[in-house]
Design a protein around this nucleic acid. Structure first.
Length: 373
RNA sequence: GCUGGAGUCGUCUAGUGGCAAUGACAAGAGACUGUAAAUCUCUCGCCUUCGGGCUUCGUAGGUUCGAGUCCUACCUCCAGCA
């Protein structure tokens, strides 16, 4: 069983430590999105230096390239990528459903590789096998996202996710036994809660997942900022307190991190910060700015004066503006360092503010300043 | 000086008689939430009540119902010859 120690509970929120075979994660924590076993534009050493505690790679992408067997051959995701800290993998469910021309049946999902047209089939079982080959510390169950927001579609997607969870758990149990026999590192499975914006479905899904007694939980299919708190309240009131919860894919808006932590989520991942960084949209305490805008051409102040990342300690807005205008690689590197550091440190600060009782103050001051309210 | 070629939105460029005129770049702005995203969208002569109006293809004339496009002169640039 995955060890999760809780240091403090504050309502639904909590401060804890997840103990993985590759080290501890002090929660709440922001997990870097390393989809193809790399955080785009950043080295793992840079990720380490900016304070990241864990990364999340994507099974779907790694199946296509370089293939999960190659990663196993390399000694697993951590060895392969030189990230010697905790790792997660997403199951690939989310990506596959967003592709055109997917054939989804009760048994499996079939799709063609966008790289070369090769046909692929992923089942809950094969996703588990792939994730064990990749060798992350924490895996996500292979889930099914609804194609529409309609209640009936959401309900069906949720029910299929539940049936697939049973298959994931059965396969995972087999794979875990094998690993124990071979004296390999332990790997852990999170069940994924679905149900869209419908609180009755969310409650049903949380209950179903909790009853299966997995190592932890992913909360998937959350897209809307409005109502996110209600969804999380519903789900996290039902999920067992003593197991970690990962909010899948949220964190582009800092507000989401506060809501997520406040209502009981322990880890977050999101591609937004690094994607926006590459496109010149950078976090500051006063809101997001587009560094490419003409008004920054002569701005010789740091991107964010109170920030202690490599970018803000050494470079000016004018310089970043120039790097983006000239499409220099370093623009993306520095911007990614900053944005990733920004979200990681916001969540770290949420953690410390929960511990010393200043969360409410931190939250209201941060949000008022960031969103200019 | 002679001969030939060329001058189109900031730049390069399409356009050989028929609707401000092609494409790229640059520029201006926006979007991005478990990454087919170093991507995508919009604007890009001036004005506009968004119906449209006005002024434009080196300059000045001319032919024509109509000219970036044809004719004449001039200006500038390029190549070759002196």
């Amino acid at each position: 069983m995955l060890k999760f120690d809780i240091e403090k509970n504050i309502g639904l929120a909590r401060v804890g430590v997840i103990h993985t075979p590759h080290g501890d994660i002090k929660t709440p924590a922001f997990v870097g999105a390393a989809t193809r076993a790399t955080v785009k534009a950043l080295t793992m050493q840079e990720m380490d230096e900016l304070g990241s505690q864990a990364i999340l790679a994507n099974t779907y992408h790694l199946i296509l390239r370089p293939g999960v067997d190659l990663i196993k051959e390399a000694g697993g995701l951590a060895e392969f990528s030189s990230w010697h800290k905790p790792t997660f993998t997403d199951s690939g469910g989310f990506q596959i459903f967003s592709l055109p021309d997917v054939k989804i049946t009760e048994e499996s999902v079939k799709f063609k590789s966008y790289l070369d047209g090769r046909k692929f089939e992923i089942t809950p079982e094969s996703s588990m096998q792939a994730q064990w080959a990749i060798g992350a510390d924490i895996h996500m169950a292979f889930d099914h996202l609804a194609k529409s927001e309609k209640y009936q579609d959401m309900k069906e997607a949720m029910e299929r996710t539940h049936r697939w969870l049973d298959r994931c758990i059965a396969e995972n149990t087999k794979l875990a036994k094998q690993a124990t026999k071979n004296h390999e590192k332990e790997q852990f499975l999170y069940a994924v809660v679905q149900g869209g914006d419908f609180l009755d479905l969310r409650a049903e899904s949380a209950k179903y997942c909790a009853d299966k007694n997995p190592d932890g939980f992913g909360i998937g299919g959350v897209f809307v900022a409005d109502g996110m708190d209600e969804i999380l309240k519903t789900v996290n009131s039902i999920l067992p307190v003593d197991k970690p919860r990962h909010l899948l894919g949220m964190g582009e808006e800092p507000r989401d991190l506060f809501i997520g932590a406040e209502f009981g989520c322990d880890t977050f991942d999101c591609v937004g910060p690094t994607r926006m960084a590459r496109n010149g949209s950078l976090f500051t305490l006063d809101g997001r700015i587009n560094i490419k805008n003409a008004k920054f051409a002569h701005d010789f102040t740091p991107l964010m004066p109170d920030c202690d990342c490599e970018c803000c300690k050494n470079y000016t807005r004018a310089y970043l503006h120039h790097l983006f205008r000239t499409d220099e690689i370093t623009a993306k590197v520095l911007a990614s360092i900053h944005n990733e550091h920004f979200v990681v440190s916001v969540v770290d600060k949420i953690r410390s503010s929960l511990l010393d009782g200043t969360f409410e103050t931190y939250k209201s001051e941060f949000l008022a300043r960031y969103y200019h309210k």
